[in-house]
Amino acid sequence: MPIPSSLVTLLVGMALVLSGLWVGYNVNLLPLDASVNAPVYDSLFRVLFSIGTILFLGIVGLVVFSLVRFRRRAGDHTDGLAIEGNLLLEIVWTAIPAIVVLFVGIYSYDIYERMGGMSSLNDHSAMHRMPAMETMEASVSTAGAGADPMAGTALKAPRVWGGIGTGGGETNVLPVEVTAMQFAFIFHYPEGDITSGELHVPNGRPVELRMKANDVIHAFWVPQFRLKQDVIPGQPTVLTFTPTKAGSYPIICAELCGPYHGGMRSTVVVHEPDAYDAWLRKNSPVTATVASAPSTPTA
């Protein structure tokens, strides 16, 4: 008895979905996840990878099957069947991709919100509420406003043009000012007045990078944090992340910035909190003089 084609289709479809899910959840293409939003990103990646695998295997399978099953046999000069279309099929394969991309869009919006992307620096909505604008903009940089060289007066805090902010809900944020130039990143810590070529941050504490560029556009990228933000001359941007794993990770410039673009790299060192405090004390010109005598035994 021949197997009905609907049953074959169902079985092939189930096998496809299962293999797509298996690939999505078992093939790891990503580097170490070392920030709070990296596992969130990875779950989005797994979903996209699964859906993509199902679609790709299905379509390649159809192409290969057609090429083998429907190939022209030698000596056969006849035509195929004169099928010019099928409205039901057209509706099905319009609706299914539409539902899939709608789902993917809503899901990635949710992921983006969990990463903090939607919450901060609402400069667009701020424009519609003119009186509130200055306070909102100022709130982005309240924590380090005193040390911000670009904030001449408290009211004229620079507008933040892009990036992922803290959303204002975080306390205990570590502000770091980032200056990008050809071909280096300079990190300045308002807390201890430290200037460094490497980024040192404590594990588990939110870090807010306030970034500006001196010459051309650069981009700050840490693959292990799954975060990137352009550093744009004339337009300050922010990037917030919370590291979760101690270690050293590369900082990479991702925007073509001149001949030595490929060499424009640095390192972010994630310390355990007490090791970070030790690093801060060791390098800070302010605390080094004040706190050196009493704290030497424990440091």
């Binding site: 990103y41 989005l44 990463m115 799954r226 990137k228 925007e255």
Partner: peptide, 13 residues
């Protein structure tokens, strides 16, 4: 995948 902002923030450029 690249059209999704959170995905693209990692792999852009």
């Amino acid at each position: 995948a690249l059209a999704q902002v959170p995905f693209d923030i990692h792999v852009h450029d």
